[in-house]
Computed example of a mutant assay.
Amino acid sequence: MLSRIFFACIFLCVFCACSPLSCRWMEHKFRQYSTNSLTLLDLMAYHYVNQDPEVNIAAFPYPLYHQASGASAEAKLAFTVQVLKEVSALFEEDDSSSSWQEVTMEHFLNVVNKQADELQLCVSTIHLPNRRLHIYFKRLSNSVFGQMGHSAEAWELIRREIKLHLIRADHLVSSLFISN
């Protein structure tokens, strides 16, 4: 009887240690980095942009976030990692026309990449990238930059759209702490 209890405790400890909820970086640093990325994104705002541009932006993928919110903890983290990597890839496009200071942009990319890398370490199994999310980011890039070039106004539209993604990604990860 004692050996069964002992093995049950060992199993529970191993399971909890492998759980994404035990990821120390996520517990202690994610919120700080998330806040920092949003603050840096706000610093990059371009205040003289046309508020109603004649650009057809790819529709925000609310259904994908809704689907991810009902997924397992690991799937939520994997989705968030993909969002962060897609954001980083988008912001690494030609930003020579943006109104952002280069140091702010570099710092923003460092924070986003650090979040993605550290959260990736919290995911213990391999998750295939969400193809629809990848296609959304490609369409976003093609629609905005294709219609407006890489102008400061185009980058502002991208910045505002990305802010929504970072807020939603923060909510996804934060839900892991609320539900437990």
Results as ranks from 00 to 15, higher is better:
residue 141 S to G: 13
residue 140 L to E: 12
residue 37 S to W: 01
residue 66 H to R: 15
residue 104 T to H: 13
residue 102 E to C: 05
residue 66 H to A: 14
residue 43 L to T: 13
residue 137 F to L: 06
residue 78 A to S: 09
residue 121 L to C: 07
residue 68 A to L: 04
residue 78 A to V: 05
residue 81 V to A: 02
residue 107 H to T: 15
residue 45 A to F: 02
residue 109 L to Q: 08
residue 57 I to K: 10
residue 81 V to W: 03
residue 143 S to K: 06
residue 97 S to P: 01
residue 80 T to E: 01
residue 134 H to K: 14
residue 123 V to R: 03
residue 89 A to Q: 12
residue 53 P to D: 08
residue 124 S to I: 02
residue 92 E to I: 05
residue 130 N to F: 00
residue 106 E to M: 14
residue 49 V to K: 01
residue 114 K to P: 02
residue 82 Q to L: 15
residue 123 V to S: 00
residue 131 R to E: 10
residue 80 T to M: 04
residue 35 T to W: 06
residue 38 L to H: 01
residue 93 E to N: 11
residue 127 H to Y: 09
residue 78 A to I: 05
residue 50 N to E: 06
residue 38 L to P: 04
residue 139 R to N: 15
residue 53 P to W: 04
residue 95 D to R: 12
residue 95 D to H: 11
residue 88 S to N: 15
residue 127 H to E: 09
residue 71 A to E: 13
residue 115 Q to C: 10
residue 53 P to C: 06
residue 135 I to V: 06
residue 113 N to L: 07
residue 105 M to I: 07
residue 116 A to Q: 01
residue 113 N to C: 05
residue 73 A to E: 12
residue 89 A to V: 04
residue 76 K to F: 06
residue 60 F to K: 08
residue 144 V to A: 10
residue 111 V to D: 04
residue 84 L to M: 12
residue 44 M to Y: 06
residue 41 L to G: 03
residue 108 F to Q: 04
residue 68 A to Y: 02
residue 90 L to N: 12
residue 74 E to K: 08
residue 114 K to Q: 14
residue 129 P to Q: 08
residue 129 P to F: 00
residue 52 D to K: 12
residue 88 S to T: 09
residue 36 N to S: 15
residue 141 S to E: 12
